[in-house]
């Protein structure tokens, strides 16, 4: 229960413990431990402390829901993600050492269809409907060995090793914790409210260093990736582009700061061009209409799915989204100058 505080039987256990809110000493230890759980995820308090569960089981267990309460109260997407990731990673490290029945029990809590397998090197078969939502999250989505096309799939069952099933569960648990922080909270005791304020203040101080540097350097036309150059070339020649191709080109150009007017103009050679229609669509993708959020350009892997990735060069192998191509291209160009 100390290791897997999200399981339903733990919730029940906490209720039965009947922790006395008036016993300040007890509550303080729980809240302190909850603070450490969160603080360790952004280098506010020592990292080591996080790895060692608190010596008193009750406190350790109860600190998990309290930590969730605090994270929910801070309402910061990046903190939530970091916290969920650290809890999920911890569970992953425990799971690696567990026997089948514990792993299966936890998978079943998440309503997975999973069975042990004797076909070595695999230990389990997981239904593809459980495999896919997790294997397409986080870092896994970029690794070819996690792609379904590179897995053994039979009658809906994906064969996985023990290590892999733990890794998939890590994603499931992360998603679960993120989900719990979206639940509405009613009233929080003052002592927890204080921690929320403290964590919030400390986190905001460190946040700029934690988030990836927001690249605002825009590409020149000579630095566009091959796929975009190809689409651009075809458009200016007035050739027909599929919906996915137009989407790719327009969202890319918009993100590079090209104006809606110039983008609309580009399409004026296309045989079925109608300015009003094209303008509407371009402005929609740019987030100037409708949902008000600019659409993001497809990742390289999606461009491959749609057959839009053409003539990839060595730089393409190092990027995941065409929008970052020019950032890699720049250094090589600067070198050439020297």
């Amino acid at each position: 229960m100390v290791k897997y505080p999200f399981l339903p039987q733990v919730r029940k256990h906490i209720a039965e413990l009947g922790i006395d809110i008036n016993d300040l000493g007890e509550l303080e230890s729980i809240v302190d431990r909850a603070k450490v759980r969160i603080a360790a995820t952004f280098e506010f308090l020592a990292h080591m402390q996080n790895q060692v569960p608190y010596k008193r089981t009750e406190v350790e267990i109860a600190s998990f829901p309290v930590a969730i309460l605090v994270v929910t109260g801070v309402k910061d997407k990046i903190l939530t993600e970091r916290y969920a990731l650290s809890e999920a990673k911890r569970v992953y490290s425990y799971l690696l050492k567990e026997k089948d029945e514990i792993i299966l029990g936890i998978a079943e809590f998440f309503e997975w269809k999973i069975h042990p397998s004797k076909q070595r090197p695999f230990s389990y078969v997981v239904d593809f409907t459980n495999y896919l939502p997790n294997a397409t999250r986080g870092r896994l989505v970029h690794a070819p060995e996690w792609k379904l096309v590179n897995r053994q799939l039979s009658k809906g069952q994906v064969s996985v090793t023990k290590n892999e099933v733990c890794r998939l569960l890590q994603e499931e648990i992360k998603k679960y914790i993120e989900g719990r922080t979206e639940e509405k909270i009613t009233k929080t005791p003052q002592i927890i409210q204080d921690v929320i304020e403290e964590i919030k203040a400390e986190f905001l101080k460190r946040k700029p260093h934690l988030t990836e540097f927001d690249q605002k350097i825009q590409a020149k036309e000579s630095e566009y990736p091959p796929c975009i150059m190809h689409l651009l070339d075809r458009t200016t020649k007035g050739q027909h582009l599929s919906h996915a191709e137009r989407f790719t080109l327009v969202t890319y150009l918009f993100q590079q700061g090209v104006s809606a007017d110039r983008i609309v103009n580009l399409f004026s050679n296309v045989s079925d061009f109608r300015e009003d229609k094209t303008r509407y669509q371009v402005e929609h993708l740019a987030g100037q209409r409708g949902s008000r959020t600019p659409y993001k350009t497809y990742n390289c892997s999606t461009l491959k799915t749609h057959g839009i990735c053409v003539n990839p060069d060595p730089i393409c192998r190092t990027i995941r989204n065409p929008l970052t191509y020019h950032l890699r291209k720049k250094p090589t160009r600067d070198k050439e100058k020297k």
Partner: peptide
């Protein structure tokens, strides 16, 4: 995203 993996599997993309 999950459906994209099904598409890639059916078409053999990324094999």
């Amino acid at each position: 995203m999950a459906r994209k993996e099904i598409v890639d599997y059916v078409m053999g993309v990324g094999f």
